[in-house]
Protein backbone atom coordinates (compact mmCIF):
# COMPACT_ATOMS: atom_id res chain seq x y z
CA UNK A 1 0.00 0.00 0.00
CA UNK A 2 1.39 3.45 -0.90
CA UNK A 3 2.40 5.97 1.76
CA UNK A 4 -0.90 7.79 1.32
CA UNK A 5 -2.64 4.55 2.25
CA UNK A 6 -2.96 5.44 5.91
CA UNK A 7 -4.75 8.71 5.15
CA UNK A 8 -7.14 6.82 2.95
CA UNK A 9 -7.70 4.27 5.71
CA UNK A 10 -8.36 7.01 8.24
CA UNK A 11 -10.92 8.71 6.04
CA UNK A 12 -12.66 5.48 5.20
CA UNK A 13 -12.83 3.89 8.64
CA UNK A 14 -12.21 6.24 11.52
CA UNK A 15 -15.87 6.89 12.29
CA UNK A 16 -16.83 3.22 12.36
CA UNK A 17 -13.77 2.43 14.44
CA UNK A 18 -14.57 5.15 16.94
CA UNK A 19 -18.17 3.95 17.29
CA UNK A 20 -16.98 0.38 17.73
CA UNK A 21 -14.44 1.49 20.32
CA UNK A 22 -17.08 3.52 22.14
CA UNK A 23 -19.50 0.62 22.27
CA UNK A 24 -16.75 -1.71 23.44
CA UNK A 25 -15.34 0.56 26.13
CA UNK A 26 -18.36 2.63 27.04
CA UNK A 27 -16.22 5.74 27.31
CA UNK A 28 -15.61 8.54 24.83
CA UNK A 29 -12.08 9.11 26.09
CA UNK A 30 -11.19 5.42 25.86
CA UNK A 31 -12.78 5.25 22.41
CA UNK A 32 -10.66 8.14 21.17
CA UNK A 33 -7.49 6.62 22.62
CA UNK A 34 -8.30 3.24 21.12
CA UNK A 35 -8.96 4.77 17.68
CA UNK A 36 -5.68 6.64 17.75
CA UNK A 37 -3.74 3.63 18.96
CA UNK A 38 -5.35 1.51 16.27
CA UNK A 39 -4.11 3.77 13.49
CA UNK A 40 -0.72 3.99 15.19
CA UNK A 41 -0.46 0.22 15.12
CA UNK A 42 -1.86 0.12 11.58
CA UNK A 43 0.90 2.43 10.33
CA UNK A 44 3.57 0.21 11.81
CA UNK A 45 1.97 -2.90 10.31
CA UNK A 46 0.80 -1.40 7.02
CA UNK A 47 3.11 -3.63 4.93
CA UNK A 48 1.34 -6.65 6.45
CA UNK A 49 -1.96 -5.58 4.88
CA UNK A 50 -1.87 -7.77 1.79
CA UNK A 51 -5.53 -7.37 0.82
CA UNK A 52 -6.76 -3.76 0.95
CA UNK A 53 -10.33 -5.07 0.69
CA UNK A 54 -9.89 -6.60 4.13
CA UNK A 55 -8.68 -3.36 5.68
CA UNK A 56 -11.88 -2.80 7.67
CA UNK A 57 -11.80 -6.21 9.33
CA UNK A 58 -8.04 -5.82 9.90
CA UNK A 59 -8.49 -2.47 11.66
CA UNK A 60 -11.39 -3.74 13.78
CA UNK A 61 -9.27 -6.69 14.83
CA UNK A 62 -6.38 -4.44 15.84
CA UNK A 63 -8.74 -2.27 17.85
CA UNK A 64 -10.31 -5.20 19.66
CA UNK A 65 -6.89 -6.63 20.53
CA UNK A 66 -5.84 -3.26 21.92
CA UNK A 67 -9.04 -3.09 23.96
CA UNK A 68 -8.59 -6.61 25.32
CA UNK A 69 -4.99 -5.80 26.18
CA UNK A 70 -6.17 -2.74 28.10
CA UNK A 71 -8.85 -4.48 30.12
CA UNK A 72 -7.03 -7.77 30.61
CA UNK A 73 -6.00 -6.98 34.14
CA UNK A 74 -8.92 -4.76 34.95
CA UNK A 75 -12.19 -5.81 36.44
CA UNK A 76 -13.93 -2.81 35.02
CA UNK A 77 -17.40 -3.67 36.13
CA UNK A 78 -19.61 -6.45 37.23
CA UNK A 79 -20.82 -8.38 34.23
CA UNK A 80 -24.00 -10.34 33.99
CA UNK A 81 -23.36 -14.05 33.78
CA UNK A 82 -25.19 -15.32 30.73
CA UNK A 83 -24.90 -18.96 31.58
CA UNK A 84 -28.43 -18.82 32.93
CA UNK A 85 -29.75 -16.79 30.03
CA UNK A 86 -31.50 -18.72 27.33
CA UNK A 87 -31.42 -18.10 23.62
CA UNK A 88 -34.94 -16.76 23.52
CA UNK A 89 -36.75 -13.80 24.94
CA UNK A 90 -40.33 -13.62 26.08
CA UNK A 91 -42.91 -14.22 23.42
CA UNK A 92 -45.35 -11.57 24.51
CA UNK A 93 -43.66 -8.82 22.55
CA UNK A 94 -45.78 -8.44 19.47
CA UNK A 95 -45.52 -4.70 19.43
CA UNK A 96 -43.47 -2.08 17.67
CA UNK A 97 -40.22 -1.56 19.57
CA UNK A 98 -39.92 2.10 20.48
CA UNK A 99 -36.71 3.97 19.99
CA UNK A 100 -33.93 2.75 22.25
CA UNK A 101 -32.02 5.27 24.29
CA UNK A 102 -28.38 4.92 23.19
CA UNK A 103 -27.20 5.58 26.74
CA UNK A 104 -29.36 2.76 28.08
CA UNK A 105 -28.05 0.54 25.33
CA UNK A 106 -24.51 1.36 26.40
CA UNK A 107 -25.39 0.61 30.00
CA UNK A 108 -26.75 -2.77 28.96
CA UNK A 109 -23.70 -3.46 26.79
CA UNK A 110 -21.40 -2.59 29.66
CA UNK A 111 -23.10 -5.26 31.71
CA UNK A 112 -22.30 -7.87 29.11
CA UNK A 113 -19.09 -9.81 29.08
CA UNK A 114 -16.86 -8.85 26.17
CA UNK A 115 -17.33 -12.29 24.68
CA UNK A 116 -21.01 -11.43 24.13
CA UNK A 117 -20.64 -7.69 23.65
CA UNK A 118 -18.27 -7.83 20.70
CA UNK A 119 -20.41 -10.05 18.44
CA UNK A 120 -23.49 -7.98 19.30
CA UNK A 121 -21.74 -4.74 18.36
CA UNK A 122 -20.33 -6.15 15.15
CA UNK A 123 -23.70 -7.70 14.29
CA UNK A 124 -25.64 -4.49 14.70
CA UNK A 125 -23.22 -2.46 12.71
CA UNK A 126 -24.39 -4.85 9.96
CA UNK A 127 -21.05 -4.65 8.32
CA UNK A 128 -19.77 -7.99 9.46
CA UNK A 129 -21.09 -11.35 8.47
CA UNK A 130 -21.18 -14.20 10.96
CA UNK A 131 -18.08 -15.50 9.28
CA UNK A 132 -16.34 -12.11 9.64
CA UNK A 133 -17.24 -11.99 13.33
CA UNK A 134 -15.97 -15.52 13.80
CA UNK A 135 -12.66 -14.55 12.16
CA UNK A 136 -12.41 -11.42 14.27
CA UNK A 137 -12.83 -13.41 17.44
CA UNK A 138 -11.04 -16.59 16.39
CA UNK A 139 -14.15 -18.60 17.18
CA UNK A 140 -16.16 -21.21 15.32
CA UNK A 141 -19.08 -19.64 13.49
CA UNK A 142 -21.53 -21.74 15.54
CA UNK A 143 -20.20 -20.31 18.80
CA UNK A 144 -20.63 -16.80 17.40
CA UNK A 145 -24.25 -17.52 16.47
CA UNK A 146 -24.96 -19.00 19.88
CA UNK A 147 -23.45 -16.02 21.69
CA UNK A 148 -25.37 -13.64 19.45
CA UNK A 149 -28.64 -15.34 20.18
CA UNK A 150 -28.03 -15.20 23.91
CA UNK A 151 -26.74 -11.64 23.86
CA UNK A 152 -29.71 -10.48 21.84
CA UNK A 153 -32.12 -12.20 24.14
CA UNK A 154 -30.55 -10.48 27.09
CA UNK A 155 -30.64 -7.06 25.43
CA UNK A 156 -34.20 -7.52 24.35
CA UNK A 157 -35.29 -8.34 27.84
CA UNK A 158 -33.16 -5.55 29.25
CA UNK A 159 -34.29 -2.88 26.83
CA UNK A 160 -37.88 -3.84 26.18
CA UNK A 161 -40.22 -1.19 27.57
CA UNK A 162 -41.67 -3.39 30.28
CA UNK A 163 -38.14 -4.22 31.50
CA UNK A 164 -36.70 -0.71 31.49
CA UNK A 165 -34.66 0.85 34.23
CA UNK A 166 -37.78 1.52 36.27
CA UNK A 167 -38.34 -2.18 36.49
CA UNK A 168 -34.73 -2.98 37.16
CA UNK A 169 -33.67 -0.45 39.75
CA UNK A 170 -30.72 -2.40 41.08
CA UNK A 171 -29.30 -2.90 37.58
CA UNK A 172 -28.55 -6.51 38.25
CA UNK A 173 -29.92 -7.60 34.95
CA UNK A 174 -33.16 -9.03 33.71
CA UNK A 175 -35.50 -10.74 36.06
CA UNK A 176 -37.80 -12.13 33.44
CA UNK A 177 -35.28 -14.09 31.49
CA UNK A 178 -36.46 -17.47 30.58
CA UNK A 179 -33.91 -20.16 30.19
CA UNK A 180 -35.81 -21.39 27.22
CA UNK A 181 -33.81 -24.13 25.59
CA UNK A 182 -32.81 -23.74 21.97
CA UNK A 183 -33.29 -26.49 19.45
CA UNK A 184 -31.37 -29.58 20.46
CA UNK A 185 -29.43 -29.61 17.26
CA UNK A 186 -27.92 -26.18 17.96
CA UNK A 187 -26.87 -26.57 21.57
CA UNK A 188 -23.27 -26.38 20.44
CA UNK A 189 -24.09 -23.29 18.48
CA UNK A 190 -24.09 -24.92 15.08
CA UNK A 191 -27.55 -24.84 13.47
Amino acid sequence: MPSGGLHHLIDAHYEALYRYAYRLSGSAADAEDLTQETFGKALARLPQLREPDRARAWLFRILRNLYLHKVRDQKRHKVVPLDAVGDLADRDTDQEMPEIDPAKLQQALNELDEAFRTPIILFYFEEFSYRDIAEQMDLPIGTVMSRLARGKAYLRNRLAPEHGTDNDPDGTGPRHEKAAPGPKKVTDGVP
Partner: peptide
Protein backbone atom coordinates in the same frame (compact mmCIF):
# COMPACT_ATOMS: atom_id res chain seq x y z
CA UNK B 1 -34.33 0.02 16.98
CA UNK B 2 -31.15 -1.55 18.29
CA UNK B 3 -29.26 -0.87 15.04
CA UNK B 4 -30.26 2.78 15.18
CA UNK B 5 -29.24 3.07 18.83
CA UNK B 6 -26.00 1.17 18.26
CA UNK B 7 -24.93 3.59 15.57
CA UNK B 8 -26.00 6.68 17.48
CA UNK B 9 -22.53 7.53 18.66
CA UNK B 10 -21.47 11.07 17.94
CA UNK B 11 -17.93 11.14 16.61
Amino acid sequence: ALTAAMRAVPV
